[in-house]
């Protein structure tokens, strides 16, 4: 009896998740009347705006990851090494982006960094790009920090550092050559999650008026019928790819750490 209910729950739930995926794929193939074709994909992929916005977002995602690593890794390391009492504070701050909606944060950016403020970042394109980058790094902060902190918890940070210091290594060297390689698995899994979040992000990019992939998708959705479905399939494939790679990495590094 219990098993019947279990299967019922799983099948109903599974249908709910599968149908939209099937529906989207089916819809994306329907562009040519009367037969299935890849026309929608062809149309999307040949659109110069698609290439421009997609490469813009990929570049932003890469920079976000870089900025995130630069901020999170030294901080998490330092807090574990020297300021353990500060950990709850840092943790609280890194969780704030989950509490404060992105739309409110970007609203604050627009008000704080407008053309008439002391730091008029929104005045120039490059300034706005920088602002968007920082916004993305904020969004990625909770995931990055948790991943790296978990990675660090498997190391004996203090002994490693002291050993390196006794061999004459400086701080930069310790972080780049010692800590980073050891938390690489954690950083990578945080990185791919960040990538998946940033690549299709809409709210911040739209409100800062940047030519990113998210606003492009939205615009296309408002004006076309079949291309959006093709875009959704592509976006889903990218998300799946990222998460798949992330799982693979964490499993790979996880087993390697246990093997040690």
């Amino acid at each position: 009896m219990r098993r019947v209910w279990s299967w019922a729950a799983l099948i109903v739930g599974g249908l709910y998740f599968l149908l939209p995926l099937i529906g989207t794929i089916e819809f994306s193939l329907r562009m040519r009347r009367g037969e299935y074709s890849l026309d929608a994909y062809r149309s999307v992929l040949s659109d110069p705006n698609f290439r421009a916005t997609f490469s813009y977002s990929v570049a932003m995602a890469a920079l976000t990851i870089l900025l995130g690593v630069l901020i999170v890794v030294p901080t998490a390391y330092w807090v574990r090494l020297r300021l353990p009492r500060l950990r709850p504070v840092i943790e609280f701050i890194t969780l704030l982006p989950l509490v404060i909606p992105a739309i409110v944060v970007v609203f604050g950016y627009i008000r704080l960094y407008n053309t008439s403020s002391i730091l008029p970042l929104t005045g120039t394109a490059s300034g706005t790009n920088l602002l968007l980058l920082c916004g993305y790094a904020t969004l990625a902060l909770p995931y990055m920090y948790r991943a790296v902190d978990t990675g660090l918890s498997t190391l004996d940070v203090r002994s490693l550092t002291e050993a390196a210091q006794s061999l004459g290594a400086g701080w930069a060297r310790i972080i780049v050559r010692l800590i980073l390689p050891n938390v690489l698995g954690a950083v990578m899994s945080g990185a791919f999650l960040s990538f998946a979040i940033v690549i299709g992000e809409f709210t911040m990019a739209a409100l800062l008026n940047r030519p990113a992939f998210g606003p492009y998708m939205q615009l296309l959705g408002a004006n076309r019928a079949y291309e959006p479905a093709a875009l959704a399939v592509i976006a889903f494939a990218v998300t799946w790819g990222c998460m798949g790679v992330m799982q693979l990495i964490s499993r790979l590094f996880g087993t390697r750490m246990q093997a040690k």
């Binding site: 149908l19 939209p20 529906g23 989207t24 819809f27 959705g221 959006p228 959704a232 889903f236």
Partner: peptide, 10 residues
């Protein structure tokens, strides 16, 4: 956005 597209298509 893609999620919205998926549900429109479904």
């Amino acid at each position: 956005v893609p999620l919205a597209f998926a549900f429109i298509a479904t």
